[in-house]
Amino acid sequence: MKLTLTIWRQKDPGAKGKFVRYPMDNVNPEMSMLECLDVLNESLAERGEEPVAFEHDCREGICGSCGFMISGVAHGPLPATTVCQLTMRHFKDGEELVLEPWRSRSFPFVKDLVVDRRAFDRIIQAGGYVSVSTGNAPDGNAIPVGKEEADRAMDAAACIGCGACVAACPNGSAALFTGAKIAHLGILPQGQPERDRRAVRMVAQMHAEGFGSCTNIGECTGVCPKEIPLEVIARMNHDYLYGAWRERRQVVTTIAPATDWEFGKK
């Protein structure tokens, strides 16, 4: 099949970026979007041009490395799919696709389709530890967990941190990500001792990173490759509101959101 890829090309954060059109004549419909870019990059390398930079790792939709906008939708038009799992047969022959990186102040631009998502790591880091007894591996059923709780925690824990929620949100909010991280520990009995503190700190870090606010419209859930439900955001709000009151005497500090790219030294 034939496709035209219009890709955002930008050498580095300081350079001026532009869209470049790449017509592709021989696209195998069974290829994934990333394999399609691999094929394009091969031909670019043969011509002596700079290949298109994009992030990837497992290519089976579970690592959260890959992701970019395809014609205005994060991870492309197929629901519950990362770009590595999106096969080209879902596009029409002759279609023109516009590939853009995630756009967010909190995800500093790196190159072409790559952005720096370490803001997410710092939110997780801010959450701190979970109390577990050291020593031998605990008995598997020592702490009873209800089936429904286990399922809801697992739904939240399915988050792979790809950043599509931020990219799709018109407000650039990281509420779905932070909500998923707060919910998946907050639902389980093991997460109860630090529940208040964790919510307050992760929300504080989310704020410090400069993410926008949630308006509950659900664009994030719509593009989430793991279909994290909007419920986790309510969970975050709930835990934050209670936690902010109960932890009101605690001094909460955040981790400085500094990246090398911001300061121009690589």
Binding site: R105, G172, E219
Partner: peptide, 18 residues
């Protein structure tokens, strides 16, 4: 805050769920 959260907008942006 939300306006500042995305200084560079998208060339193409579609709504899927709202």
């Amino acid at each position: 805050r939300n306006r500042d959260a995305r200084p560079i907008g998208y060339q193409v942006k579609k709504s899927v769920a709202s």
